[in-house]
Design a protein around this nucleic acid. Structure first.
Lengths: 188, 188
DNA sequence: CCTAATAATCCAATATATTGGATTGTATAT
DNA sequence: ATATACAATCCAATATATTGGATTATTAGG
């Protein structure tokens, strides 16, 4: 078990690694971000726990985002998980007239979930709001679908992709013909 | 440091909203997180830019992650983007014997990218390391594939899903028969 | 109206994050 | 070895994040 250093330790290593990988000096990074070299040095040595403001500046300068910088992605084996087809769970009609195949490993629930959804002629999938900041990506594989999220709506055909906030009521509906879609839920 | 205003403001609203949505008082949140009520109050009013350490405690207590708290998902229209099938770009053979259809909107590049990959009989997709923390999800739609990431490797059949770190050299290879796969890249 | 009780903000004391300049370290070239 | 140039760390001064306790709302009973 690679143990949980405190958050500052992890951040330190991540920052140093990404800065070096871009071939930047502390000075250069300082000019890019507006954070002093001294501060950068301290942060990279785990002697200071930066403010969100300064961290924000750094993420902008180094072109990384908070998730990547702070998530606890272990350094263990690079392959995190394999889920076999035989164990792929299937949910029948959570709305009406649709079947859902869960393609993502269970330990990713809430982070990044991948579903294949099969709609019957007039099937629909109606969902309550998810967590604040939750976003759904959907690509239509076959047929045609209409999406409603909050007050917005859109009509999609085969091959179309839509991205919408899912922290409000949203629904996906097949119009007149069976349809198949791929749904990716981020931060549910 | 012009952007501090924004980030603190956003954070403030997000925090208050999620705390309220859980029906917690400042006192309760304080006990859960170990951060003083005063601090919480200041943060929620945008008068203080918390330290990563304290922010970390808060995310643990409120069960949200940094991405959700700080990402700039504006409250504008809920539907962020629609990409039509006719505009779906296709890349031919980045490795050898594979075609890639980009299913995600371009403004999401680097955040969440979705690809459909078509392999010929012995086609392969070989990729250089992506950003630190980058993770790829892949589901095999048809055929069989072998994946190598860093020092690990795995064999996958139709319907199987794998998740692996992509901040090191990685490759996907069809063995003996044409294959189709869905690839999701997180934080490239 | 008065209390009691809980929630949020204000305030002074303290800890720590952040800065600019000085110092040390590490190369490369003369 | 000396000099030059740049990169990283150390150090004192300052700004600001964080805390505990006092103060003000706000609500609910009597």
């Amino acid at each position: 078990m690679v143990e949980n250093f405190n958050i500052s330790e992890r951040l330190a290593k991540r920052l140093k690694k990404t800065r070096k990988s871009k071939g930047l000096s502390l000075e250069a990074t300082s000019k890019l971000s507006g954070v002093s070299r001294s501060m950068l040095s301290q942060i990279e040595r785990g002697e200071s726990s930066p403010t969100v403001a300064t961290l924000w500046s750094l993420t902008r300068a180094l072109q990384v985002d908070f998730a990547g910088l702070l998530d606890e992605s272990d350094t263990g084996s690079t392959i995190k998980e394999v889920m076999r087809a035989s164990r792929t769970p299937t949910i029948n009609s959570q709305g009406e007239g649709c079947r859902i195949r869960i393609l993502s490993p269970p330990d990713q629930a809430g982070q990044l979930e991948v579903y294949e959804i099969l709609f019957t002629k007039n099937g629909a999938l109606i969902s309550a709001p998810h967590r604040q900041g939750c976003v759904e990506h959907m690509t239509v594989l076959e047929g045609a679908l209409s999406v409603v999220a909050g007050d917005d709506g859109a009509e999609l055909g085969a091959g179309d992709t839509i991205r919408y906030a899912a922290d409000c009521r949203h629904s996906i509906r097949a119009n007149g013909q069976p349809a198949k879609a791929l749904l990716i839920v981020h931060n549910s």
